[in-house]
Every structure is written in C-alpha cells, then in structure tokens.
Design a protein around this nucleic acid. Sequence first.
DNA 1: TCAATAGTGTCTCTCAGACAATATTTC
DNA 2: GAAATATTGTCTGAGAGACACTATTGA
Lengths: 232, 232
Amino acid sequence: MTTPYNINDYQNPLFTVDSVLFTIKNNALNVLLVKRANQPFIDHWGLPGGFVDINKDTSTDQTALRKLKEKTNVSPLYLEQLESYSGHERDPRGFSVTLVYFALVPEQAVSTHIETVDDVKWIEVNSLNTLSIAFDHAYIIQQAKTRLQQKALYSMTPVYCLPPCFTIGQFKQVIEAIIEKTIQRKTLIRRIEASDMFETIDKKVKSGGRLAQVYKIKPGVDIVNFERNLSI
Amino acid sequence: MTTPYNINDYQNPLFTVDSVLFTIKNNALNVLLVKRANQPFIDHWGLPGGFVDINKDTSTDQTALRKLKEKTNVSPLYLEQLESYSGHERDPRGFSVTLVYFALVPEQAVSTHIETVDDVKWIEVNSLNTLSIAFDHAYIIQQAKTRLQQKALYSMTPVYCLPPCFTIGQFKQVIEAIIEKTIQRKTLIRRIEASDMFETIDKKVKSGGRLAQVYKIKPGVDIVNFERNLSI
DNA sequence: TCAATAGTGTCTCTCAGACAATATTTC
DNA sequence: GAAATATTGTCTGAGAGACACTATTGA
C-alpha cells in the first residue's frame, strides 16, 4: 500500500443492492423474483437488484428503487433496509456484500406490467422450495418475511400492500396473510382509530354481506407504531 | 462492458465498515471514538472502522469485530447491524457506502486499555457537539442511540453494558441512562423474572443501604424481547 | 436512631382477545 | 327469511405505572 486511501490498493468486495419486494396475492404472501440472464446462477430465479451506478444513483436507496422500477415499472410504496449479507461462500466470484432492501406494493400495481414479460414473476413465499433460487436469496427472503411479520404485529406497515382505497376486511386479510394467524376485527378497528392515519371516504362497497366502509390513508401521515404487539 | 460481471468494469463505491460502540460511563451513554491518522478528516474524531480485508474477514461482522479489537483489545458482548449509509456527499473521495454496526460493552473491559493510548476515547453522546466529528458520523451516532433507546424499551439488550455480575440497581441505572427517563424498579424486577435470562449468585454487595442481590446471565441464553414497550 | 437502598404487595389503567349482539346487504 | 359480512358493545386478562409498605444495611 503505497498511497493510503487509494481504492485500487484494496481487493474490494463485490457490492450489490437487492430487494425483497412483497405483496399479497390470492391471500398469500408473494415475493417478486427475476430470472437471471447471466452467470452465475444463469436461468435461476433471484431477487431484483444489481450494482450501484454511481453516475445515476445518489444513494443505495436509489439503486434499489431504480432496479425495481426497471423490473416492475412502478416504485414501491414502502422501502426500508433489511440487512446486508456478506462472505466468501455466497457468490462463486469471491467475497461479496449485498445490501438488501425490503419493499411493499399493492399487487395490481405490478401485475399488469409483469404479465407481459416472462422473466419477472410473483411467487408465493411458502412455495419457494419448488424453485431453484440463486445465491442465498431463499434464506434472505425468509429473513425478510420474519421482519415483515414482526412489523405487522406492532405497526400499520402492511397497509402498503393495499390499494389506495380499501376496507377493513381487506386490511384484515392482508395482515392475516402476513402473520399466518387470524386476528380480531375489533382489534384492527381499535388500532385504525388510535393511529389516526386513515380517513373514511364517502363510499361503501359490497362484500357479500353488509356494505363495507372504504378507507384511505390521510395525506402526509407517517406510519404509526404501537407500544404493544398483537399476540403471538 | 465487454465481459459481464468483471468487477473492474464498474466504478465501485468505496465500501467501509464502521461501528458505534456504546457503553455506560458515569451514568451517561458514551461512544468510542478514534482520532483519524489519515485524510480525509485527519485529526478529527470518528467511528472505529475501515475496509474489509478479504484475506482475513469471513464476513463484514468479522471486519467490525477485528477493527474494534484493534482499538479496544476486547470483543464487544453485543453486535448487530444498524444500517448502511451511502451517497456522493458523505466522503470527499466520492460515492461511498458504510455499513454501520452497533455494539455494547461494559466500560471497564475497555477503559483499562484505552487509557494507555491517546487516539481512542470514550465521549458522552450528549456532548458530541463539542468535537469535530468526521464524515456523517455524528448523525450516525444519533441514529444508533435512537435504535438503542428503542431496544431498551422492549428487550434486555442493555444488560450487555454491565459487567458479568450486577445488581438490579445497576441494571436500572444503565437503562435509565440509555432512555433518559426513570423507570419503576418493580417493572424491571418483573421483566427479569419473566425473561428467565438471569440467575442469582450466592453473593450480596453493599449499595449504601440494604445489601443487594447479585445476578448474572444464565449461560447460553438468548436475549429476550417483550411484547410491550416500557412507556414513552 | 436515621438515612439510604433493596425488595414486596397491590391497586389502577390500557389495550389485546374473545365473543355476543346488532346492522345491512344479497339471494 | 337465511346466509354472509360489517359494525358495536362489553367482559376478561396480562402486564406496565404508581406508590405504599417492609427489610436490611451503615453511620
């Protein structure tokens, strides 16, 4: 090392940004996978992502959003860092680091686009084992699922899997699909009121029985966390 | 790009690993800072960290631990990823990514070592503004503090700021120093019992009043989370 | 004895779970 | 009316906050 801090003096790790994009489809948690066009793991399914483009991206958040938009044509409503994964074994090209984001969208925002291509698709998280998944992405998806399940217990985050207008019944189904347990409708209503995140709109929709009140997120509100979890 | 996936085809971001090592000293939250010996920000104080050494490190966790051990001579009892920070502006050398860990140790484990050197020191988090801090490290430390405060509300994590044997009074003081609020001793006792993480040892120590029972962590237990937060 | 800290007993309050009761809808 | 779903009412239980009370130490 002749000159300190010259990046080329170091063997740099391979650094990528990947995203676990979830939605609820058919009452089940689904994740967006992309068929790899290149080695390694060519033709396997993996998470959408890639290298930072330092000419286009102002941060790794932008990298994640850019790659998701390339694949789905929309930006997710919710995006946060999950964790980074690193090591010599996870990529045959050598030591690698991937910074993983986790993101949520309503299904229909994406499905109309990806139905026109055959290298991007939704897959049920509980059916991942039927596919050959690239790298350690199957493990990462499980970690992201666990994180989402935790957040569903103490926050309103799952609402970002819903379209702009929704009923309490739809919200309940989304939460139940995520945590894989039923919850009390009453508890959800209490939280909706306490959070003050939502407003009713002057519309009711049919639901098989009594018409259901339609809600939407108040403009500009932040996601609300609760001090107590839903019960395990 | 002639050959896909050749790392040298990309302008890679500068990738580093930094750690926010906290302890409680004089009933206040302190963070370990290191005086920088090189540009940029030479002679400013910054977080301990550096580049991944892919010949020594099996993961970025190892990078964080290796750098902390170089500076403090001990490994922290608790280490977890905080978040990564990226952008063009945070480092004058160009687009950079730093993966930040947050770590806890009991004070005395470190202080005996760092008292012998003058480029590593503890500084109270609430007095950071009296120093010139390198990069965006002051902001990162605030983020780490917020995360630690959250964890103190729903988990036993702060116990890793304590020596192996401790009293409930000491534990209470550590939690109060972190969250900057007083808590009910009774609540802490209830959580200690419910967590089943601790055992009493056959010793009592003097405390200014009645002798205090000494506790230690049961071997092999994992950190326990609660379903309810302490009140704001 | 008093001051100080440790530890216990117990009441209140909040909010999740449970579930009954009522309200609307379609068929 | 019956089936289905929406909405409200209300009781129970767990656990945090508050705080009084007892216990044990040193000065």
